[in-house]
Simulated scan of single mutants.
Amino acid sequence: MSEAVGDPGLFTPDSVTWQMHGDPMMWVAGVRALYLQALHPRAVRGVMQNSDFRRDAWGRLMRTANFVGTTTYGTTEAAEHAGARVRKIHSMLTATDPDTGERYGVDEPGLLLWVHCAEIDSYLQVLRRSGFPLTDAQADRYLAEHRVSARLVGLDPRTVPASRAELAAYFEKTRPQLTAGPEARTVDDFLLRPPTHALLVPAREVLWRRVAQLAYAALPPYAHELYGRPAPAPAVVTRRLRTTGTLLRRVPARVRWQLPPKHILRAMERLGPGARPAPYKAGR
């Protein structure tokens, strides 16, 4: 697909989203999102019954990252194409409730909304707590901007929380539906001990487990209660997030952005150096 020179895409360099999604703490936020999404039995069942999660969890995480990168930094055509592909895949998938035998589509609006809200909340919470500078007004603007990504996956944008108050009300309403069932336990076990080559086990224990533990710690308290594993006090977690964010942000952005598929570098080539994401631009 050709790059449309000068096309700013669906979010544009003037958005809060454009600035935030170039931050390295997005990876920690993505793992937090997996933990949170797994607490909705109907939603996580749709994942487990339609894929080999333990063998393809990395692929799933990378596909999500690629979707976020494409919809944030890609051309309008590329973003719309990515959304259409996700909608088509979801329209063909179903899951079965083992207790009732009910068969349902994974593209139920309520399930799509949960996945969306858990993901966007994770991005916002982790980045803010790790030191990415956002005022409350900018945080609300970020959530409002993501009615665009909600539309891409098949949701009516009018039904999607567009402020911190609306998002908090949504989570309060949804909490009675959440539980750490067998599927959530599988996700938790995988994230703590992902299968890897024997030679890489030490690296997994030193590096990956710290990321997973930090992402888990960044969950809301009710999620810790459901999983049944305690977490440090919120102030301690925030301090660890800030330390991690500071370390990761010391890696030059141009080095970080070289990782395939180079969404940000391609956007800067298309739009010019002024399109470079930077935290201080979020307030514009």
Rank of each mutant, 00 (worst) to 15 (best):
P277W: 06
A144T: 07
H21R: 15
D140K: 04
R242E: 15
P220T: 05
N66S: 14
D56L: 14
D107W: 08
T179G: 15
Q177R: 12
R249Y: 13
P234M: 02
L36E: 13
P261C: 07
R254N: 13
L226Q: 04
Q213V: 03
A82K: 06
P260T: 03
T174M: 14
W257S: 01
R254G: 14
Q37A: 12
I264R: 09
Y280Q: 14
V115M: 11
L226T: 03
Q258I: 06
M268N: 10
R209L: 12
L124G: 02
K88W: 13
A180C: 15
A139H: 01
A267P: 00
V160G: 04
Q49I: 00
S15W: 00
D52F: 00
L199W: 12
N50Q: 05
Y123G: 13
V201A: 13
R210H: 15
F171W: 01
G46I: 02
R85M: 10
I264C: 04
L155N: 01
P260V: 06
D156S: 00
P202V: 05
V201G: 15
L152G: 04
A223E: 07
P41F: 07
V187P: 02
P161W: 03
I264H: 10
E119T: 05
R147K: 04
T72H: 10
R209M: 12
V187K: 03
I89P: 09
G22Q: 06
P176S: 00
M268D: 14
L10I: 04
D52C: 10
Y73M: 12
V251S: 09
R229T: 13
T100E: 05
A84P: 11
R193H: 15
G6N: 11
P13L: 10
T100C: 04
E166M: 06
E166K: 07
R204D: 10
E205V: 09
D189M: 07
P234I: 04
P230Q: 02
K173T: 14
V31A: 02
R276M: 06
A198P: 02
R210C: 11
M92I: 09
L207M: 11
G181D: 15
A267D: 11
L259S: 14
L265W: 03
H40Q: 08
Y73C: 15
L178R: 07
D156E: 09
T135G: 13
A57S: 14
L152K: 00
L113I: 03
R54M: 06
P221A: 07
I89T: 01
R270Q: 13
L241A: 05
Y280G: 11
M26G: 12
K88S: 13
T75Y: 05
L10D: 06
A118W: 11
W27Y: 13
T238E: 05
S163R: 01
